[in-house]
Design a protein around this nucleic acid. Structure first.
Lengths: 124, 124
DNA sequence: GCCGTACTACGGTGTCTATCGTAGAAACCG
DNA sequence: CGGTTTCTACGATAGACACCGTAGTACGGC
């Protein structure tokens, strides 16, 4: 079993672990809405929308445990709302803005605006 | 207890059974999104949006039982998405367009458009 | 090689929910 | 009044889900 010390051939990408993302055509409106209907996940999405660059999971403070945070990020990824890639020990997250815009024009922006308005309305 | 046969004074509305609706300020984005994230309820909302007038529960054909249909209409009402009033033996339903538009401008229209696009995309 | 950081997988728990069938209330029609 | 239609309330069930803690993996730095 000599492959254990192989010098990482070109066919093997740098990231050992690949995360499954739905293709754009596989994204379903019901699942997107469900993903966005949880308060914790809405916080995550608003944070990602406000950030200029990609954001690590740990950079989004949620009032739940680490494992629950992981769970919410996975729900968002599996619904097609965010993309995730490993970068070092971190997992970077970004909104799939272009994909969502192509499928559901204006939807994400309206949800973000609605969330902002509600946040202001309820104790800004 | 003479009120049993009172001739319906002005203070008593014609409908004996009153349905609880959330006030506009009580409507929450998370609950609206959750209400819209179910396929059956999305069918209902699209039907109501397409109809010119108010629609009875029985006029929206869903592939589920009668009691399940009742359940879905109640979820939509309690989330603030629709209004319901009894009219004879029927219960009439209508979208709370103005309330939703005031709270979350453009949201409902974007969801309806997204649902339409997805329906076309997935088997016209 | 060892340690710290970041995230995950697993197993468990309590709650919610989508579904059904049955039985029944409320209003209209004859 | 009796029958029909429309919707509901109840009880039950199976599955989903939000949450936790523990244990473990992968990576980077020393």
């Amino acid at each position: 079993m000599a492959f254990m010390t192989l010098p990482t051939p070109a066919s093997v990408p740098s990231a050992a672990r690949d995360l499954p993302h739905p293709a754009t055509a596989e994204i379903r409106l019901e699942e997107v809405l469900h993903a966005l209907s949880d308060p914790m996940r809405l916080i995550v999405v608003r944070n990602l929308a406000a950030a200029a660059t990609e954001v690590a999971c740990s950079e989004v403070p949620l009032p739940v445990s680490k494992s629950t945070t992981t769970h919410h990020f996975r729900v968002l990824r599996e619904a097609g709302v965010i993309s995730q890639i490993y970068r070092g020990t971190s997992k970077m997250n970004a909104l799939r803005r272009a994909d969502l815009e192509a499928l559901f024009p204006g939807l994400l922006d309206r949800v973000l605006d609605a969330a902002e308005r509600q946040a202001v309305r309820l104790g800004g």
